[in-house]
Amino acid sequence: MTFSGEFLAFILLALVAISGGVLLLNLTKVVHMVVALVFTFISIAGIYILLSAEFLAVVQVLIYSGAISIIMLFGIMLTKHNDEEEATAKGGKWRKAFLLLGVLAFGAVFYAGIYNLDFGSTPVALHENNAEQIGISLFSDYVIPFELMSVLLLVAFVGAIVLSKKDEEKEGEKE
């Protein structure tokens, strides 16, 4: 494969995304973990651009890097905000090792499935008027799911308010 600029961009973004994930696992302070994940989210937005989904990239930055991360930070601050990950309990170590094995096995199996995958399909012009394409499809083919989604968001909104009413926080309103 050629050492194209696109490939370079992919490597860079992928590295940032993975290192954000690894930092999430290894950092001790909760706030740091969330901030590390913000990098991951942003680089995933970059990946979306590479995959000709500009609209989604913007949405990703708005919702994940913006809204969700901020909610998480609020959540941390409203609870024990300088909490640190303590040493795991006695049974925890054994469980972690067990889980790690499982996750690795899972990854290996799937990697074996995808590492040589190539559908060889012809590219479609998804990047031209991306938002328009999405809009047309959403309001023609997927109107009902779209309307259902609005109901879901309303329910979540009301539910979040009811659940956290006493604090009079409005973290559910962001969406």
Partner: peptide, 13 residues
């Protein structure tokens, strides 16, 4: 993304 947002809202609440 929409479902995830709703989930996070309720989860944090």
């Amino acid at each position: 993304i929409a479902v995830a947002a709703a989930e996070v809202a309720v989860g944090i609440a």
